[in-house]
Nucleic acid binder design. Structure first.
Lengths: 150, 150
DNA sequence: CCTCTGGGTTCCTTGAAGGAACGCTAACAT
DNA sequence: ATGTTAGCGTTCCTTCAAGGAACCCAGAGG
């Protein structure tokens, strides 16, 4: 954990960072999303320290984005996304879209996403949940909300 | 910077984390987005160490998501988003939507977003850039792309 | 010439990440 | 009954980044 505690800030970005803001956490979430569900798989795929992997998995379980459950009579466990965690993957998908566009270089994107609904290779775009039109950084006004800081 | 270098991984999430994955970076980006453009403003608003703020600003400038420019004859500078940086704000907007939904508690969201196009208080949603239908964690297949690891 | 302001830089302390070694449990093989 | 192996962590030590306070520098204004 970073030394400063973001979880108490009156900001949904800061609070979300309290869940996946630590190093490795987004990559762990990605791996679990695409099917690496066990400790050894995660450790091998990421090359992360076992100590840190343990800490991150516990943290993600505590925050309710993944669930730890036995898959054998022996003490064996797998980690799976909860509903809350599956929605958090939205953040990853937008990171992929941005990284593919700005950081992929000449080699092109490392992975492609095929959308079930249309069958095409595609990526995510952001729209307004209310009217369905594009919604990006310059398309909104930011106003104080009910949970604003005192 | 976290000790492990994410920038060389064949993963757009890891590469994006190399840009905004360090502690404070997303919050700095948020502040610049909403209009805190100067060093002193950022330091006072975030309560971040001046040393770390300097490091983060330099890093974000290096990666091309913000620009440092003088605003006075005196040695005074402000930081503004580049186009690349403005698109990166998409990631923040999705974090806000998720944090508002799952972490805001009874007090409600700390800030509200009003969409220019429809005038309503709203939040972002993810759709397929190709067909416009919803696109979330379970709506896609992940395939190897041209820039996949050897 | 003194002071003030914005924008950093230096230095010390604390604590998290890296990494290797070790431990624990339950099945299976000999 | 005694290895052996696989899966899942825990312990311990070293290194480096974050926190925080103090300091520095340039230019304008009194």
């Amino acid at each position: 954990m970073q030394r400063t505690d973001f979880s108490e800030m009156a900001c949904s970005i800061a609070r979300t960072l309290d869940v996946i803001g630590e190093p490795w956490s987004p990559l762990i979430l990605r791996d679990i999303w695409v099917g690496f569900s066990r400790f050894e798989q995660l450790q091998a795929d990421l090359g992360i320290s076992r100590k840190v992997l343990t800490e991150r998995l516990n943290h993600l379980v505590d925050r309710g984005v993944i669930e730890r459950r036995p898959y054998d009579q022996r003490p064996r466990y797998e980690y799976v996304l909860t509903g809350k965690g599956r929605e958090l993957v939205d953040v990853l998908m937008v990171m992929v879209a941005w990284g593919d566009k700005w950081l992929a270089g000449t080699a092109g994107p490392p992975v492609l996403y095929r959308h079930h609904a249309c069958g095409e290779i595609s990526h995510v775009d952001l729209v307004c949940a209310h009217c369905g039109k594009p919604m990006h950084a310059d398309d909104i006004d930011v106003l104080p909300g009910p949970g604003a800081a005192a």
